[in-house]
């Protein structure tokens, strides 16, 4: 009895020391080594690829953001600003695109609430951009997984061109060219789907508008 208690105590002590020494190796040395290399060799990426306009950081190219009009009296949700390309719907935080609350809707494929929300989004996007209901692509009516999706599909960018050009009094061809320049194909031609980064496109748009 005494012996087995002593053995258990010895084993537990060994286990604790093993955990502590492995914590130093994998929980202190390893992440700091990665940090040192990352901050030296890949400083930009390691800090979230921050994008600056006129010397001021306006966001991360990897995190989506809202492009809404200021909230007016009596409104509960702000309206999208027609002067900007709009991102996908987001359920991160109450207003969307809140990095302190990343996540998805988790609504099921047969949930009537989801079907209804999607129909509403489709109608809203179609009216806002002056296109037919069937022209609205799937990414424009579905909330992303992270709620921070920085990208939209080239199709969704395309249906926004006329509206943005009109709101900014720019020639449609120039805005269209901007979208083409900001369209990325699949990685290595086969991985993922084509994307348009909304923040980068809007920064270029702002420059174009002067």
């Amino acid at each position: 009895m005494n012996n087995s208690v002593r053995n258990t105590a010895r084993l537990t002590w060994a286990a604790l020391r093993a955990l502590l020494v492995l914590t130093v190796v994998t929980g202190v040395i390893y992440p700091l080594a990665v940090w040192a290399v990352a901050q030296t060799a890949f400083h930009n990426q390691a800090n979230g690829d921050q994008v600056t306009v006129n010397g001021k950081v306006v966001g991360s190219s990897l995190l989506g953001q809202n492009f809404n009009l200021p909230l007016r009296k009596g409104q509960t949700t702000p309206a999208p600003d027609p002067k900007w390309f709009q991102p996908r719907p987001s359920v991160a935080g109450s207003g969307g695109y809140d990095p302190t609350a990343s996540g998805a809707s988790n609504l099921g494929p047969t949930n009537p609430k989801l079907a209804q929300t999607i129909e509403q989004r489709r109608a809203q996007v179609a009216v806002f951009n002056g296109v037919s209901l069937s022209a609205v692509p799937v990414d424009a009516v579905t909330a992303s997984g992270s709620g921070l999706d920085p990208d939209i599909s080239p199709q969704y960018a395309q249906i926004q061109v006329d509206r943005v050009a009109k709101a900014r009094h720019l020639p449609v061809a120039e805005v269209d060219k901007l979208v083409q320049e900001h369209t990325n194909g699949r990685e290595f031609g086969i991985l993922g789907e084509p994307t348009v980064n909304v923040l980068k496109l809007n920064i270029a748009l702002q420059k174009l508008a002067g």
């Binding site: 999607i118 992303s144 994307t195």
Partner: peptide
């Protein structure tokens, strides 16, 4: 599924990239 059909694809909860 009704909701996915309404959207025209299974992109709810998925990232564009």
């Amino acid at each position: 599924g009704a909701a996915l059909h309404a959207a025209g694809g299974a992109m709810e909860g998925k990232e564009q990239r």
